[in-house]
Amino acid sequence: MSAELSILDLFLQASLLVKIVMLILLGMSVASWAMIIKRSQILSNAASKAGRFEDRFWSGVDLSQLYKEVEARKDDLMGSEQIFYTGFKEYARLHRSNGQVPDAVMEGTSRAMRVSLLREVDELETSLPFLATVGSISPYIGLFGTVWGIMHAFIALGAVKQATLAMVAPGIAEALVATAMGLFAAIPAVMFYNKLTNQVSKLEHTYATFMEEFSSILHRQAFAANQE
């Protein structure tokens, strides 16, 4: 009879605490999958935008013209575009007020771009700590449910005079479902945490490289303007 039980049957027959554990794990699994899908789309979009913007940046377009194009949609910027917008805006402001000291202009510009870079990376890493948490604690939550369920089954078994395997097996099976659900929640969370973290690292490297290249261009312009 126990072989015919479905997971739903095992859940319904489990003790209240084991049911709560299973529901918690189910909720964590659903939430982690929602975050995985959303964050994967955001990172894929960020990589595409970075590639398109850098193609435009290196196409030979005038930086002032590019700045005007970017400024027209400044509320929808991310990644390299945001770093460019922040850096060029700060460069133009400092150059107007302190153009005779190019080192000061570049120091302020670089500082503004570094802050922008950190903010962009922080935005990319949103939800990743939650995935790490799910991956690390889900097996232990499931194990807690399993231990409690098995303990409950053996306590009930001790109350009868003639104990058989058929009497204890359903209770143990109910408890083991909690461990299975813990692994079901943890494994995808760990796998995608590693995958998404790697994507964030690659994007961070892309942004940092662009920032350094852009800084070099502005550095040349600042010193060339000072010599005129």
Rank of each mutant, 00 (worst) to 15 (best):
E212G: 00
A156K: 09
R119W: 04
S80E: 14
A166C: 02
Y91S: 01
M1R: 08
K74D: 03
Y140G: 11
L16I: 13
V30I: 15
R96W: 09
Q65W: 01
S216N: 12
L176R: 05
I36M: 15
V134T: 11
M28T: 15
A208P: 00
M22V: 04
Q162P: 04
S64N: 11
F11C: 01
A156R: 05
S59L: 07
T164L: 06
W148T: 08
N194T: 02
E54D: 05
T146W: 05
M28R: 13
P129Y: 10
R73N: 10
T164F: 03
S2T: 04
E69R: 09
E213C: 02
F57V: 01
M191I: 13
R220G: 13
I150W: 14
R93N: 09
V101C: 09
V70D: 13
I141Y: 08
M191P: 05
D55K: 08
K161F: 01
Q41I: 10
Q82G: 07
E4G: 12
G135T: 01
Q227C: 00
E120F: 03
T126H: 12
I137A: 15
L203A: 09
A72M: 04
V177A: 13
L8I: 15
I7Q: 15
M151V: 07
G27F: 11
V200H: 06
S59G: 07
R73Q: 12
Y91E: 02
F144M: 09
K195P: 00
L77C: 08
L118C: 06
A166F: 03
I141F: 05
F210P: 03
I36A: 15
D9P: 02
A178F: 03
I150Q: 12
I83T: 04
F154N: 04
A169N: 02
G149S: 03
V147Y: 13
K195R: 12
L176K: 13
A186E: 06
R93G: 12
F184N: 11
W148V: 07
F53I: 03
S64M: 00
N226P: 00
E123R: 08
K19A: 02
E107K: 12
I187N: 11
L8A: 15
M106L: 13
D62K: 11
T146R: 10
E204Y: 00
K74W: 08
M113I: 03
A14T: 06
D122G: 03
V70Y: 12
A166D: 11
L157F: 06
A225L: 11
S110F: 00
M113R: 05
L165I: 05
G149C: 06
G79N: 02
V168R: 04
V70F: 10
A92N: 15
E107S: 14
I141P: 02
R96E: 15
A92K: 15
S216E: 08
A185T: 07
F210E: 07
Y91K: 01
L43I: 11
T146N: 11
I36T: 13
Q65I: 06
H205V: 02
M106Y: 08
L131T: 01
S2Y: 00
G79L: 04
S216Y: 11
S59N: 04
M78T: 04
S29K: 09
S97F: 10
F84P: 00
S216A: 12
L16A: 14
